[in-house]
Structures are given as structure tokens and as C-alpha cells.
Computed example of a mutant assay.
Amino acid sequence: MPTFHRILLCYDGTREGQHALKDGACLAQELHAQVHVLSVLNHSAWMQGADITSSVSIEFITESARGLLDEGLQKLAARGLTATGHFAVGDPLDQIPLLANELNVDLIVVGHRHSSRLARWWGGRSDGLLLDRVSCSVLITMGPESVADSTVAGEATRPAEHL
């Protein structure tokens, strides 16, 4: 297995982001790796809701997103990890590879959210995969099933684990 010296954890506060942060922290501790955390304010998602968010200042939205980064850094600190935080505005599929290349990371850790074909089609994702945009390894964390997935399967679920 390759040695990962520099790890980039992508954190957005979602359930999937929580799992990426947790799994990445465990790996970083085992490998004694340098840790970076990236939170991206996705401007395309924000712009789609522009009619709703027009009454909300961009400063408030930016501060909320920066608060997520601080939350992720605090969770890592509680585990005894020192991490460097990075904040970006834009499309995560652009911002993650940009920072990964700039920092010369060995591994990127991201969470994955299951979506239906209709959701993928509706979202219009034609911009390619993260894997096509980076030259390092990528760890995609899944976490436990979501409530919607287990409800369909008729199973009980457990809440997302936090750091």
C-alpha cells in the first residue's frame, strides 16, 4: 500500500461529509499524515436558489460555510489531530482538484451520497468525475445506509456517527 503523507479531507457538514472526516481522521492518525480540510461553498447550488437567497446576504452564507470548516477542524482537534483549513467558493469538482494539486496531496477523502438516475439527470452533471481531474488516490467513504435507503428495504437505521 502506498504511504500517504499529505491527506485532503473534504468536509461540507453533511452526513456524507461527517463520514469522510471521520474515516480520513482515522487513516491520518494511523499514518501520522499531514491533514488538510477543505470546505467549498458551492456557488452553483447557491445560485439555483438565488430567488430565495436574495434576501440573505452573501456574507451570512459565507460565514455559515466557514463555520462548517471550523466545525470540521474542531472535530479533528478533539481527536488530537492538527489540520490546516482551506475555504473555497465555486464548484467542488473544480476546487478540490485545484487545492489537491496545489498542496501536492497523496490522498483525497470525500463522502458519497447515493442518488437516483433521475436525480443525476435532473442535476445535469456533465462535468466529469473527480477521479478524472486528479493525479492522486481518492478514498470515497460511504457510511451507513441513509434513512431513505433503509426505509425502502424495511430495515431500522442508526444515526450518522460523529467524530
Rank of each mutant, 00 (worst) to 15 (best):
G72P: 01
N42I: 05
A153L: 13
H114T: 11
G123N: 12
I52N: 04
P144T: 10
H5W: 02
G154H: 11
V109P: 01
I108Y: 03
T62K: 08
Q29I: 12
L41C: 05
L8G: 13
M47P: 00
R6P: 07
V134I: 11
G128F: 10
E63N: 14
S116Q: 04
V40E: 04
D12E: 03
A25W: 00
L98D: 15
A156K: 11
I52M: 10
V109Y: 02
I96L: 10
A78R: 06
W121C: 05
G124N: 09
L81P: 03
R79K: 09
R117G: 14
S39T: 14
G13L: 01
T157K: 06
S116E: 05
K22S: 12
S150R: 12
P2F: 04
D132R: 07
L69Y: 01
G85Q: 03
L8A: 13
L131N: 13
D51E: 06
S150I: 07
H162V: 13
P2A: 06
G80W: 03
I58P: 01
R6C: 12
Q29M: 12
F87A: 03
S150L: 13
A65W: 05
A77K: 04
I58V: 02
M47V: 08
G143F: 02
V134M: 08
E155T: 14
G128C: 10
H43Y: 07
A45L: 09
F4K: 01
H86S: 03
G49N: 09
V110T: 02
S54M: 11
E102R: 15
V35C: 01
V37N: 00
S150E: 14
V147C: 02
Q29L: 14
F60R: 07
S39R: 00
H36I: 01
V40H: 06
L31R: 12
G17D: 00
L131C: 13
T157L: 09
T141E: 04
G85R: 04
E145S: 12
G80Q: 03
H114N: 11
R6Y: 04
L8V: 11
E59S: 08
D127W: 08
G13P: 02
Q48C: 05
E155V: 09
L38K: 00
W122H: 04
I7Y: 11
C136F: 01
G17K: 00
M47C: 06
S55W: 05
A33Y: 05
F4S: 04
G72V: 02
R158H: 15
L107D: 04
A20N: 04
L103A: 15
R113K: 15
A100V: 08
S137M: 02
G128D: 09
D70Q: 13
A50I: 11
L69D: 00
E161C: 12
G85E: 06
P2R: 07
M47D: 14
P159L: 12
